[in-house]
Design a protein around this nucleic acid. Structure first.
Length: 254
DNA sequence: ATGCCTCAGCTCCTGAGA
């Protein structure tokens, strides 16, 4: 069984690439972020034709998340229960006995900004909800665009980007508090290439120079960790003609 | 560099992303 996450930066633009990628990598679950479309524009039929079911939570222009699955999903939840939010950032469902949470974490723009404060509030709410979800569902995966690096290994220029957005101590403390719930960073369970990133700026030939960040993560519960056999970034789609700025991350079980 | 790309939209510029 395989699960993956991918920020596709507009599903309207990237749908052909997503379908191509699914054809080449028929994962059981694909979490998408940054759909950038309203619910009525979601291409459910295109996924159905490819043999996939979907649950989605869209929004005009910004954000928007979906879970694309081979098997049916139950107990679908959109956004963090009890956390008032205008933005569509979370979708969860149970599939093949696994509680899957797909999330598009807030960017935060800059430390000290209103958007950074929102990111911190959102992270607080997410942590408390995931704590409860873990208690109810031992087999759990939390995957998506976290917009946070774990440490300098996730940053192409750790000195130049010290304490900038995605790299601040405050954000990393929140990320570690998710780890503290009993989750593991699946990528780090296995040997990886040097400078292993999941996002590269569109500007300055950043991908060709491998000037990137690892901000897309798959966190697995203890029970799921025991079943995990591989986890890696797939950089190939970033080489497409009109790529997303993010690459997919793929988790393999069994 | 308040820059550089890319995307959406009350579209020929702006806001946002990261």
């Amino acid at each position: 069984m395989q699960l993956a996450t991918w920020n596709i930066n507009s599903l309207a633009v990237r749908l052909p690439q997503v379908l191509d990628w699914l054809a080449a990598h028929p994962v059981d679950v694909l979490a998408l972020q940054e759909l950038k479309l309203t619910d009525d524009k979601f291409p459910a039929q295109a996924f159905a034709d490819a043999g996939y079911q979907a649950q989605w939570f869209g929004q005009k222009t910004y954000n928007g998340v979906a879970l694309i699955t081979k098997a049916p999903m139950t107990d679908v939840v959109k956004n963090i229960p009890g956390f008032e939010d205008e933005q569509s950032r979370v979708i969860a469902g149970t599939v093949d006995g696994i509680r899957v949470i797909g999330a598009y974490f807030p960017n935060g723009q800059a430390p000290g900004s209103d958007k950074f404060a929102y990111k911190m509030r959102w992270l607080d709410a997410l942590r408390e909800w995931v704590r409860a979800e873990l208690a109810a569902h031992p087999q759990l995966v939390l995957m998506g665009d976290y917009n946070i690096t774990f440490d300098d290994l996730d940053v192409w220029d750790p000195v130049g980007l010290r304490e900038t957005i995605h790299c601040t101590t405050e954000e990393r403390t929140h990320l570690q508090s998710l780890i503290g719930l009993g989750l593991s960073d699946a990528v780090r369970l296995f040997p990886q290439p040097e400078k292993n990133y999941s996002w590269w700026d569109y500007r300055d030939l950043a991908f060709r120079r491998n000037r990137g960040l690892r901000i897309d993560h798959i966190l697995v519960s203890e029970a799921l960790k025991a079943r995990t056999s591989a986890c890696a970034v797939d950089k190939v789609p970033r080489k497409n003609e009109r790529p997303s700025d993010h690459a997919p991350v793929v988790l393999t079980l069994g």
